[in-house]
Write a protein that binds this DNA or RNA. Structure first.
Ligand SMILES: NC(=O)c1ccc[n+]([C@@H]2O[C@H](COP(=O)([O-])OP(=O)(O)OC[C@H]3O[C@@H](n4cnc5c(N)ncnc54)[C@H](O)[C@@H]3O)[C@@H](O)[C@H]2O)c1
Ligand SMILES: NC(=O)c1ccc[n+]([C@@H]2O[C@H](COP(=O)([O-])OP(=O)(O)OC[C@H]3O[C@@H](n4cnc5c(N)ncnc54)[C@H](O)[C@@H]3O)[C@@H](O)[C@H]2O)c1
Lengths: 212, 212
DNA sequence: CCGCGCATGTGAAATTTTTAACATGAGCTG
DNA sequence: CAGCTCATGTTAAAAATTTCACATGCGCGG
């Protein structure tokens, strides 16, 4: 377990491994080889062993990986072996879908507070969370131990939302708005944007057409 | 414009370039250098020139890129200089948010039909689209010229949804369900999954903490 | 119409990432 | 408990991607 820079792509793949491993676990499979896992994830088996080697030795030679144990190890490596409290800014269509989405808490990210600036939205209760005015964020975030901010405002409001979140004390941001954010260097920002998936599917459909 | 394999990462960056370029266009900027654009996208300027070079020569030496023209060129290169008709399967929280989301048609992807299997959902009208029973997909997809399928069912139903979509004749799939799909090699599948962004933000927050 | 400044497009170098190859060690069998 | 099998962890090679460096060519000013 040497501390080298970990490729961003590795993080992405670890998420896929967890997804597939959990699906195997549901099917009561207990052990899996890097080869089998690789097939299920559509990657190379050395890739998997390499990715895991960044964090430690989790397998048993001649046997493979114990699934439950490996899931635990990956999660610990990523720092998701605990609950992260989150605050959401922008309770529109997407914001509401996120608040209702069961998989987010299941992954350890619990939305503890939601903020909007529209008076019609403030006071609304979704999944037991009352939508609050953004002006209360500075008081609420510290008191609820919120560490992660979700942004689902329109793009032109995203920077403003980020500023509020950071000033309130969040340590990282996941934004769904299509806008680049300017933040201090010590605040990681993840941009969730599936437009590149739309573009990619169009692009690859065209490629297939040109092949034939 | 030589036809080499185009890195997947390039497609992702082109989406970012378009996003930033459109934001510049809104601000009435007309020309931009690769250096300026690079800063706004947090990438290296050669990277931008390399990415664009896969598709052609779009700039003017000594000047830079004409923004409107570059947007058009990138879109043409990706094959999104036209409308793609789409069908959505699974009209739950996310499905409804997608149907209401203005940016999707704005990017040229128009949801023409929506399917569900829940009798309570069938007949519902969202944004002028009537939710239909999945059994009608084979008749509807060809008649509406649908080429792309969106899947927003629960993960255990995603494969079934994919099978229906492919049999009905879609040429590519964008799935939001956390499940790997088995599809013919000529059908591109894009997996939209932001769990890796959640994991990544947690991971980088921890890294920041270890630094300090 | 020539020369200068500037930013592109590109070939080569550096770096990163992926893949292959194999030595190592766990577990099983007789 | 020796020998064998098998899949890991790791080292080395290959491939891909990113970055550098600069020649090329457009536009403007004199
Ligand atoms: N709907 C989707 O499926 C979808 C998918 C991907 C990305 N997005 C992105 O997510 C964001 C939200 O999309 P949406 O469809 O939910 O839009 P929406 O208009 O339904 O919701 C936006 C919400 O943000 C609130 N808001 C605006 N300014 C605010 C501020 N300064 N502080 C706090 N709240 C503020 C509004 O009152 C509204 O409730 C957009 O940036 C969109 O591009 C949406
Ligand atoms: N809600 C979110 O914010 C969100 C975010 C990311 C990913 N996702 C994923 O998107 C998917 C949908 O999430 P959701 O929150 O909308 O769930 P949901 O339960 O609200 O919606 C699922 C819908 O699919 C329908 N369905 C089930 N089986 C079907 C079938 N065989 N054919 C057609 N329709 C079928 C159901 O009737 C329901 O309407 C899930 O896989 C989820 O993991 C959701």
């Amino acid at each position: 377990m040497k501390s080298k820079r970990i490729p961003k792509a590795t993080i992405g793949r670890l998420a896929v491994y967890v997804q597939v491993l959990e699906s195997l676990r549901r099917d009561r499979v207990e052990v899996v080889s890097s080869e089998k896992l690789a097939q299920a994830c559509s990657v190379n088996s050395s890739q998997i062993r390499k990715d895991l080697a960044y964090f430690g030795e989790f397998g048993v030679r001649g046997v493979g990986y114990y699934i439950q144990e490996l899931i635990t190890s990956i999660k610990r490596s990523l720092g998701i072996d605990r609950v992260w409290n989150c605050a959401l800014v922008g309770v529109g269509n997407l914001g509401r879908a996120l608040m209702k989405h069961r998989d987010i808490p299941r992954k350890g990210f619990v939305i503890k507070a939601a903020f909007d600036c529209d008076p019609d939205r403030i006071g609304l209760v979704i999944k037991g969370i009352e939508v609050m005015c953004l002006s209360r964020i500075k008081e609420v975030v510290p008191s609820l131990d919120v560490e992660v901010g979700f942004i689902s405002t329109p793009p032109e409001r995203a920077q403003r939302a980020a500023n509020f979140l950071i000033e309130a004390g969040v340590r990282g941001i996941v934004t769904f708005a299509p806008a680049r954010l300017e933040v201090p260097a010590n605040i990681p920002v993840e941009y969730v944007d599936f437009s590149h998936h739309l573009y990619a599917v169009a692009f690859y459909i065209n490629q297939e057409a040109n092949k034939a």
